[in-house]
Design a binder for these strands. Structure first.
Lengths: 262, 262
DNA sequence: GAATGTGAACGGCTTCACAGCC
DNA sequence: GGCTGTGAAGCCGTTCACATTC
């Protein structure tokens, strides 16, 4: 779920549900692993297990792409890898710029998963003049002043924001003005963008807070309700006592993207 | 009876929907900003705008927590900050361990938002002996061998995995065995955990792939390919050979690059 | 016999719209 | 008059179950 848009989900998608799109990368990863082991075909059951979803959902998801399986047999791994890659637009090269080369930005620049799937880090941009020219992950950092030129020269349409929250909106505005239409935001702030621009956010503290909510609930399952606050005092109250009991939080549940800020 | 636990008990007392829980941190962030500006009250409309959601949704979300607003007036900022914090379990201190101190792990350790919301980095753990003792973000890295002891000594129930994919499941198993019941996973792999353990995942390459999908669609919006929307328009029995559409630029499959981070 | 593809049922989340209270 | 709180309606996604195809 891309956030940041004002209204209109504009989900003008050509039939493929958002929830399905969000799972395609998962299937692709599982298929890639199978491909590397030279496995020729998989059943929906096997692939679903590898991707961590249930088989009915997987089959339904694939049905939106077309009929790529063979009844009684399963799916051809290589063929499916290609189809999903194509559907996701990974058969082409996507130049990406990362703005904000702090700890996080550097980590992203070094992240192998970027380059491995059609994404190419075209440039690293930072507002600190002292960073200019300094190579990070083998790529020289450029100054924010040249942002517009960098975007245009490289035909960049995807930007990653890893700046402090205070600078995020401004950077976002400049990226958009320069032609970027998809943004991955790591800054813990809500970005406002014009229609037609996609924003996805990843906020670490939000993910942790969601975990804390469930964690708290596990701990207070038998005992009491609200009250107090208490501080510190972390007795050895083994969270995993005999209590345990249900805890319905079975899987990671749908998918709320995720995490971390700058 | 006291049993019959199916899946989702939730029927028990306060059944706050997952979707709502996922938004509470967002509201909390917006409220905190208002609080810092000493704004006394907000209307659902204003707060919703600040959080990037619509007001009806916000009111519905708050209704699950209780009636904390005043009709005709709005919500008291301070009071709401407290109520949401309490609901999320942030009025207590959560010690967290980060396993895998590479670029990403270091970025997480340095992330300020951690401490600011009830989370405390209790320890940094890495498998590389060369890292041991080296301070990152002011905290000395400890070796994986001591993982169990660290977890127990600090009463840690939340763990963050920032290791390479290959090590993730093993680390996860050890964390869980040592008592961790909530995991935030940055490794691009599906983790298997026992019931009662919560896992949330964050996958950077997946987020980018989702953006690529939408980006691609925007680009192809002008060239009307086969925009056969409709519903049952998919009966195509013939799996259309590998030929399929030709729209694809170049058909480079280049084989499958590994989806894995460093 | 085996496994896909899919209509239909189901359940959860969002949006609407208005009653209720300040 | 302004704004919250909430039943009701609508939408979307998941799950079921089975006809269909190999």
């Amino acid at each position: 779920m891309a956030t940041g848009r004002t209204h209109r989900p504009a989900t003008r998608s050509r039939g493929i549900p958002e929830a399905t799109v969000a799972r395609l990368p998962l299937y692709l990863r599982a298929l890639t692993a199978l491909s590397e082991r030279s496995v020729p075909t998989v059943s929906s059951e096997e692939l679903a297990a590898a991707a961590g979803v249930n088989s009915a959902k997987l089959r339904k998801d694939f049905s939106y792409l077309g009929s790529y399986g063979t009844r009684g047999v399963g799916y051809d791994v290589e063929y499916l890898v290609y189809q999903i890659s194509r559907e996701l637009g990974l058969t082409q090269d996507w130049p990406v710029v990362i703005v904000g080369i702090g700890n996080l930005g550097a980590a992203l620049a070094n992240y192998g998963g970027f380059a491995s799937r059609g994404f190419r880090v075209a440039a690293l941009i930072d507002a600190d003049p002292a960073m200019a020219g300094k190579p990070v992950a083998g790529i020289p950092v450029q100054h924010t002043d040249d942002l517009e030129k960098i975007i245009k020269d490289n035909g960049v349409s995807i930007g990653v924001i890893a700046t402090p929250a205070g600078a995020a909106q401004q950077v976002c505005d400049r990226l958009v003005a320069a032609g970027v239409t998809s943004i991955l935001n790591f800054a813990p702030t809500v970005l406002t963008v014009p229609d037609g621009v996609d924003v996805r956010k990843v906020d670490l503290s939000i993910e942790l807070q969601i975990l804390a909510f469930h964690e708290q609930r596990k701990a207070g399952e038998e005992a009491p309700m609200e009250t107090a606050v208490g501080e510190g005092a972390l007795p050895a109250s083994a969270p995993r006592g005999a209590a345990a009991d249900d805890s319905a939080d079975q899987g990671p549940d749908g998918d709320v993207p995720a995490v971390m800020p700058a």
